[in-house]
């Protein structure tokens, strides 16, 4: 199939960017979206031009590295799918495809379509853990039975891949879905209980400090999340947060 690509090109964080147009013939519908971009890059290199920079790594939909805002949607038109798992059969011959980086003040563009998501790491460092040392002297793993429903819910929240699509999709560039997934995972497990309130407070504080917007419950994040993390997690975070604000000293 033939495609017209309109791709955001930007030299570095401080330069101004703009859209460039590229024609691509002979794209196989069986290629993945990123293989299509590989094809474009191979051509650019053969023409002695600089290839388009984009983030990608595992190409199995699990590492969370790939991003791309494709035709107005993070990770493109498929639901519950990352860009690397999006396949060209989803598009039609002759389509024009707009490709932009994630847009958020807290995700500055590094180059072209690549953004800096280290804000997520800092949110994690603020509280995204259970404070247990790796001594190997913890109790036996089966000492605390965990209700299967809770364990499954914790898993569903833990499935977040930290890609940032929630921020990209949210009209407020809020990262609440990301924060709530981690807070929920630990809040649902007995191991995470002791520090669950403080965790919610610390992670939300860091979230706000990073300059992400506020959650106004539009649900865009849930709809665009490649791992279909539920909005219920944000409510659980709110519950933890309100509880923490009312009961802790700090």
């Amino acid at each position: 199939m033939k495609l017209t690509l309109k791709i955001w090109r930007q030299k570095d964080e401080h330069s101004k960017g703009k859209f460039e147009s590229y024609q691509l013939d002979e794209v196989s519908p069986n290629s993945s979206f990123l293989e299509m971009l590989d094809q474009l890059n191979e051509r650019l290199i053969n023409d002695k031009k600089e290839p388009v920079v984009f983030d990608h790594d595992c190409r199995e939909g699990i590492c969370g590295t790939c991003s791309l805002y494709i035709n107005g949607q993070p990770h493109g038109p498929d639901r519950g799918v990352t860009t690397c798992q999006l396949h060209m059969r989803r598009f039609k011959d002759g389509d024009t495809i707009h490709i932009e980086p994630w847009r958020a003040k807290s995700f500055p563009v590094i180059k072209d379509l690549m953004v800096d998501r280290s804000a997520f790491d800092r949110i994690m460092s603020a509280g995204g853990f259970i404070s247990v040392n790796t001594s190997g002297n913890t109790q036996d793993a089966n000492n605390i039975p965990i209700n299967k429903e809770d364990a499954d819910k914790a898993f569903d929240a833990a499935a977040c891949i930290g890609c940032g699509a929630c921020v990209a999709a949210c009209k407020n560039a809020s990262a609440m879905l990301f924060v709530s997934a981690k807070v929920s995972q630990f809040a649902l497990l007995p191991q995470g209980q002791p520090e669950s309130k403080q965790r919610a407070l610390n992670m939300v504080r860091q979230h706000d400090k990073e300059g992400f917007g506020n959650c106004s419950n539009t649900g865009a994040c849930e709809a665009e999340c490649p791992k279909e993390i539920s909005l219920e997690n944000i409510a659980r975070l709110n519950r933890e947060y309100i509880g923490a604000s009312l009961t802790t000293d700090a």
Partner: peptide
């Protein structure tokens, strides 16, 4: 919230919310 976005998207599909 507006500030949090920074640069606006060129193409936006609003259907998800």
């Amino acid at each position: 919230n507006r500030r949090a976005r920074g640069v606006q998207y060129a193409v936006k599909k609003g259907g998800s919310a």
